[in-house]
Design a protein around this nucleic acid. Structure first.
Length: 564
DNA sequence: TGAGAGGGAA
DNA sequence: CTAGATCCCTCTCA
């Protein structure tokens, strides 16, 4: 094996790939790896990526071939790629599409050129109840009602079936986008938005109809959803995470299409309209009086002949909705998200039931094109005073995180940052209400938490936008509030455990393009040498995978800044 | 009829 | 793991 000292990667036999952080071609290698592997560890000098069957299948579904993946690794790996790893990559990638699902009358078929694959499927005990019936050595037949469950089960057994069984068109509804008209309401799809739409749906192609589009915060996911609706022209059910988002979808649909108001309904706790375009929350679907009772609103899926279901923030899709989704596989399904990571690990179910990844827009690319601000991330390590340190060590393990997070010495750091960024729009984001209240008290800045009524929030938001309010202190509402104004500086003083989602969401708060240099800063304050510092590492994984670097500084200036 | 409080759920 | 936010229902009061 030849040794290429000047290359940044090491491909290991365990399917991990190590990436040298300080290597001149780090960025190129990182961008390439991110397409088919997940970042699992990111210490200072070497980042560890891991390929998994799912990461490779998603890559395959988005159009990457095994030869492209292997070629990429070959070009960048110091010691080349172990032969076994190459074989496994081929084996995994080629599994996607090895078995197809097609329609035959009222039944469905599983078809594969690989006779062994068919044999294997027949032999699986867990598939017995689906009534698989062998037609010939390359074909199995089964009832269409098992389309979803079977795909779900087959993914777990290592067969990511390509679903070409087609879709029903649903009730038709003309939806014209206001892209061609003149005047205030006209808008134009950005190039990447058009590509995203095209990779989900192509006229006359059986492929077009289910899948997930992955785009950063602020990339215009709603617009893409609406553009897909404009292509399919059918009754559409949109599921989203909260009521603000419901209103936002409704508003944007009315603004960006010629659909009239009477055709757009809201299905929430407040209002139960079922119209040709209906926007609902996930929560109403999963409502039941108590455990063991039925989900009384789940039949919204059957209340109309939907031609398209949009799963906004598909990484939040609740478990019971998966179950219903398995039953409506003949309906087109579009998932939208900023990250395929689910904190509950059910990524496989998103893959099999909503669909594989069809398109991904990397954050850094969007930044290069100037659609989002360029953000500098800084982790500031704040030492704990003796007294607090004692309390920290004395605390029960499950309280340690909180003890570290509420380190009172963070106050001084916040003050310094406030004066350093005087005149800019600053958001201070935290997790513990008590900590936030103290900070609000000390800085005389307004604080927004869940208990504040919406009108009061609105008033503060508009004060913040106009510059009358220089900084806002916000609780976890920042994770949900779609209407929270953009800022140029975010200071995170505490957060929940290792949530990569939350970190990305909070960074998303300062992504809107900025006048002038288009720059923003994201500070995160962690107590030095505590659990909080460990959790911070995990939180940062997703953003680091996307190419963000965290500069580390010490609040007391005891050590020099480093970059990871 | 609508607003507001309270409780349960995930 | 915790703490917090949200949503949805039901009940009460005017």
């Amino acid at each position: 094996m030849t040794f290429h000292k000047d290359r940044p990667l090491i491909a290991q036999t365990d399917f991990c790939v190590l990436l040298e952080v300080r290597h001149p071609s780090f960025e190129e290698a990182r961008a390439g790896l991110a397409k088919f592997a997940d970042l699992v560890k990111s210490p200072e000098n070497i980042h560890t990526y891991r390929m998994s069957s799912l990461s490779l299948w998603n890559a395959a579904a988005a159009g990457l071939t095994s030869e492209e993946i292997i070629g990429f690794l070959d070009r960048h790996a110091k010691f080349g790629v172990p032969t076994g790893v190459k074989q496994d990559i081929r084996r995994f990638v080629e599994r996607y599409g090895l078995v197809r699902m097609e329609r035959l009358g009222d039944d469905l078929l599983l078809i594969s050129k690989d006779v062994e694959a068919i044999k294997e499927m027949v032999s699986f005990r867990s598939l017995r109840s689906y009534g698989l019936c062998q037609v010939d050595s390359q074909t199995l037949r089964f009832s269409a009602r098992y389309r979803g469950l079977l795909k779900q089960e087959l993914v777990k057994l290592g067969f990511p079936v390509e679903d070409l069984a087609g879709y029903s068109r649903g009730e038709s509804l003309p939806i014209r986008l206001r892209t061609e008209e003149a005047g205030e309401q006209a808008f134009e799809l950005r190039e990447y938005q058009r590509s995203a739409v095209d990779s989900f749906y192509r006229e006359g192609s059986l492929h077009g109809g289910s899948g997930v589009l992955v785009l950063p915060c602020g990339a215009g996911k709603t617009v893409i959803g609406i553009a897909v609706m404009g292509k399919l022209n059918c009754a559409t059910l949109i599921l989203t995470s909260n009521s603000t988002s419901v209103r936002q979808w409704k508003r944007e649909i009315l603004e960006k299409t010629d659909v009239t108001e009477d055709l757009v309904g809201e299905y929430t706790g407040m209002q139960k309209e079922v119209r040709p375009i209906t926007v609902a929350t996930y929560q109403i679907l999963t409502y039941r009086k108590s455990k063991d009772d039925p989900f009384i609103h789940m039949d919204l899926f059957n209340k109309r002949d939907w031609g398209l279901i949009v799963y906004d923030e598909v990484h939040l899709l609740p478990a019971p909705v998966f179950r219903v989704t398995a039953d409506i596989q003949a309906t087109r399904r579009l998932g939208l998200t900023a990250t395929l990571i689910r904190e509950d690990g059910r990524e496989e179910d998103v893959f099999s039931l909503v669909g594989p990844k069809r398109y991904e827009m990397p954050w850094k690319e969007l930044e290069t094109q100037g659609w989002i601000a360029s953000v500098e991330c800084v982790e500031i390590r704040v030492p704990m005073a003796e007294k607090e340190k004692e309390a920290y060590f004395a605390a029960a393990p499950r309280h340690k995180m909180r003890e570290a997070s509420v380190n009172p010495d963070k106050l001084k750091v916040v003050r310094d940052l406030l004066s350093k960024h005087d005149g800019e729009q600053i958001l201070i984001i935290g997790q513990y209400l008590e900590q936030l209240r103290q900070l609000a008290e000390a800085t005389k800045l307004p604080m927004i938490s869940g208990e504040m009524p919406y009108e009061e929030r609105e008033a503060l938001y508009s004060g913040f936008r106009s510059g009358a309010v220089p900084a806002l202190i916000v609780s976890k509402v920042a994770n949900f509030a779609v209407d929270l104004p953009d800022a140029t500086v975010a200071i995170q003083i505490s957060g929940s455990f290792g949530s990569r989602q939350e970190e990305a969401q909070r960074l998303g708060r300062i992504l809107r393009p900025k006048a002038g240099t288009n720059r923003a800063v994201f500070y995160t304050l962690v107590s030095e040498d505590t659990k909080e510092q460990e959790f911070a590492l995990n939180r940062q994984l997703f953003l680091i995978e996307q190419g963000y670097r965290y500069r580390i500084e010490w609040a007391d200036g005891s050590k020099e800044a480093v970059s990871i």
